[in-house]
């Protein structure tokens, strides 16, 4: 802790881009370049490119925004970036092939999907100690922690299930079959639902945490686009909880779903193969990483229109936004 504080203090003095600003900072992981592109939310200019471990995919910020966690799958580690210095500050022994992860609301534990090992690794963020491992289905990927910190949901891409972990006991309490290749899981802000996107199955399953049953399946339809290309991957709820924005991969679109009625209300054309997306802190913009076009689309949330495309590294995958 002392070391961290010292580093942070030194960095604050040294670095100009850490000066206070109202604009958000956007982090995009570049799977093929082994870097994180740091973008100023106001100017949309790249302010830094940070080298990280091999094949970075999942990126997530600590709840206090002081640290950015980067899952470097082929490096078998998780890099931690100090968001003041914008330098790698430490590495965590994440277990093999980390892909996506979720931090609990208190910022104490991080839940990591170890894709190659069919495990969820639970780690104490401060110490970096592994406090638990929960075996799940084959190729775990999506991760979400409930707002009350009781449950973590992990998806397994090959087994095609959502696995529910009791966070206190670090044990599975339920396994829910969903459509093929579930990629991401997200709790609603009130914790009343878990949404799971199935890439190859082309659907989103809405799960009720009271029964752990699928209560609704949402599918997509775009005239002129082959149904098999409508592959939901990344999902984000708007800050008011009214809409869900979903990246549709090879359909090159982001779908907008009414969270109440489960109706798909709009499709927004973005770059090619959007993977993951994230809102800016005030919820007015959405940033989408486009895997095949090496850019990030900025969507205006109110008008639901793509505004701008910003170049990033090769094979952009994950997005995180810091106020």
């Amino acid at each position: 802790m002392n070391r961290l504080t010292a580093t942070a203090a030194a960095a604050a003095v040294l670095l100009s881009f850490a000066s206070p600003s109202f604009a958000a900072t956007i982090f995009v992981s570049n799977e093929k370049d082994n870097t994180i592109t740091v973008i100023d939310g106001k100017t949309l200019q790249t302010i830094k490119t940070i080298p990280v471990g091999r094949r970075p995919r999942g990126v997530v910020l600590s709840p206090d925004f002081k640290e950015l966690f980067v899952a470097a799958g082929d490096g078998d580690i998780m890099d931690v970036i100090d968001t003041k210095t914008m330098e790698k500050s430490r590495e965590l022994e994440s277990g093999p092939d980390p892909e996506l992860m979720a931090v609990d609301p208190k910022g104490e534990k991080i839940y990591i999907a170890n894709e190659d090992d069919s495990l969820v690794t639970i780690m104490d963020i401060k110490s970096g100690d592994v406090v638990g491992e929960v075996p799940v289905g084959v190729e775990p990927e999506g991760m979400t922690v409930s707002p009350d910190n009781k449950y973590t949901v992990a998806t397994s891409e090959s087994t095609s299930m959502a696995h529910i972990i009791d966070n206190e006991k670090m044990k599975l309490v339920a396994n829910v079959l969903v459509d093929s290749r579930p990629r991401e899981a997200k709790f609603t802000a009130d914790g009343s639902q878990v949404w799971v996107s199935s890439e190859v199955g082309g659907s989103i399953s809405v799960i009720d945490p009271k029964t752990w049953k699928v209560i609704k399946k949402i599918r997509f339809q775009v005239p002129g686009v082959r149904p098999e290309l409508l592959q939901p991957v990344g999902m984000e709820f708007t800050k008011d909880g009214k809409y869900v924005f979903v990246a549709l991969g090879p359909a090159n679109r982001v779908a907008v779903i009414d969270a109440k009625t489960f109706e798909v209300t709009n499709y927004i054309l973005v770059g090619q193969r959007p993977w993951h997306l994230e809102f800016d802190p005030d919820g007015t913009k959405l940033y989408v990483a486009n895997g095949l076009t090496n850019d990030m689309t900025v969507i205006d949330v109110a008008s639901q229109k793509a505004e701008k495309s910003v170049p990033v590294g090769r094979l952009p995958w994950g997005v995180a936004v810091m106020p």
């Binding site: 075996p135 829910v176 029964t211 049953k213």
Partner: peptide, 19 residues
């Protein structure tokens, strides 16, 4: 071991198998 069904469960799989 971790994914056991409820006591009194059958051999039929269910879409949600509580532990």
């Amino acid at each position: 071991a971790p994914a056991a069904a409820p006591s009194g469960g059958t051999q039929q799989p269910s879409s949600a198998a509580p532990a």
